[in-house]
Design a binder for these strands. Sequence first.
DNA 1: CGATCTGTTGACGGGTTTCAACCTACGTGG
DNA 2: CCACGTAGGTTGAAACCCGTCAACAGATCG
Lengths: 252, 252
Amino acid sequence: MANAATRPKTALNQGFSASLALADEEVAALLDLKTTSRTIRRGQEIVSEGRRCSTLSVITEGIAIRYRILRDGQRQILNFLLPGDFAGLTSCFFETALYSIRAITPTIIFQIPFTAVVELLDQHPGLAAGLFRLFASEAAIRAEHLIGIGRLPGLERVAHFLLELLARLRAKGLADERSYGLPLTREVISDALGMSVRNVNRVLQQLRTAGLVRIEDHVVVIENIEELSVLADFEHGYLRPLAIAELAGERG
Amino acid sequence: MANAATRPKTALNQGFSASLALADEEVAALLDLKTTSRTIRRGQEIVSEGRRCSTLSVITEGIAIRYRILRDGQRQILNFLLPGDFAGLTSCFFETALYSIRAITPTIIFQIPFTAVVELLDQHPGLAAGLFRLFASEAAIRAEHLIGIGRLPGLERVAHFLLELLARLRAKGLADERSYGLPLTREVISDALGMSVRNVNRVLQQLRTAGLVRIEDHVVVIENIEELSVLADFEHGYLRPLAIAELAGERG
DNA sequence: CGATCTGTTGACGGGTTTCAACCTACGTGG
DNA sequence: CCACGTAGGTTGAAACCCGTCAACAGATCG
């Protein structure tokens, strides 16, 4: 545990500004809260389904997944949380957390009591605007996810998924131009895309043989972005919501 | 076209308070805006994918769907918009609308320029809280939708879908205890659930034969809610987010 | 009254799932 | 330093759910 103020602010600012486009003023206000930083081991839970969640966690390092375990033991991964994303924001609105969140890499989070965030909203209306933008962004990502699972065959579905992760990670400076390090097991991919492990493997081999994608030792390499984007019909416009400030005033 | 002030406020208030839990003050502020009411015919578009959307539409009567048409002509319905829901809120955050919205029944909407909503946010912080709650609610519905498409076989998927609609409509006083009127064609159901029309028909017949659900002449009748809920593993907790006011203070 | 929409059903095929076996890598403990 | 257990990857065969195609009927509508 370390007080937020003791950590370098630059890294956090980058994370916030990239995902929220908050003004410096709001970032400072968030940091002045009595936040605590926690280190999460790979595989550890951050939010547990069925338990009350009144703390908002901001991920500053590492990757986490939000998921539900069904009656029969199946798992559906709802989304991937990257640095700058909020874990537990939606959970705070319900009696009990609807989904679990688990780190799939070593992860560092800042915890902020939800009540403190609510109080802050009154003082900094700009924070609300930033949160709206975050919600809009997540809603769009979730919608594309839904389309992929609902209507795309396995090959296109995996292709779209890997491209989206590339784009999201690149936007945060966490990926090279066409590759990124991530411990994506076949099981994780299958649970995210509503497929079986067997089929994910089949598809990945097709993509590998076609010279489009290679996953080796926890590193995803997109070998042919153009062709893969065509295959998956991937447009990344949905990843970039506008800030409210841009929308309110005249826009260029 | 009619000015909002000329319409009876009670009906609108009901719609807002049910979905947003706004204070009367905020409702009045929204109504004082230069809103215009529009009547939409069945099948007409409210928002068009690819076109700039800078107007927020509040549905006061009728049902609409939000969807995407894929390259190959397939359609994926993302969600159903009921009275009290906002059409185009997410679209306002992007250069161009990512999805289309189309009425599937005769529909009445109130249109509010997005800039006016943004201005209102500064004056009425409570409005932001209400919008957050709305976002949280939609996020939960979308997540359950994703789980259904990703991991549930056809029978359970349709069952869950029909139960969710019942619960949502009942919450707005638009359904009886176990039935509701809605022009749900097989095609609409299949496009919402990522299935083929053929399979929807197969499944609906199974449900009908089992004495669980009957769809006749645009009316859905859940004949055995308990059994169907068990089949679909349906819990409706996700449909009721808490208001921020409840969360901020001590809760009973 | 023809055109279109919607519902229904049968036959067929294919994409996926299921099940299973085998393999490598890795970590831990004897 | 090897033994063993576990996690993750790979692959084949069979079954099956589901999608595709097609045909037909009733309803609605201009």
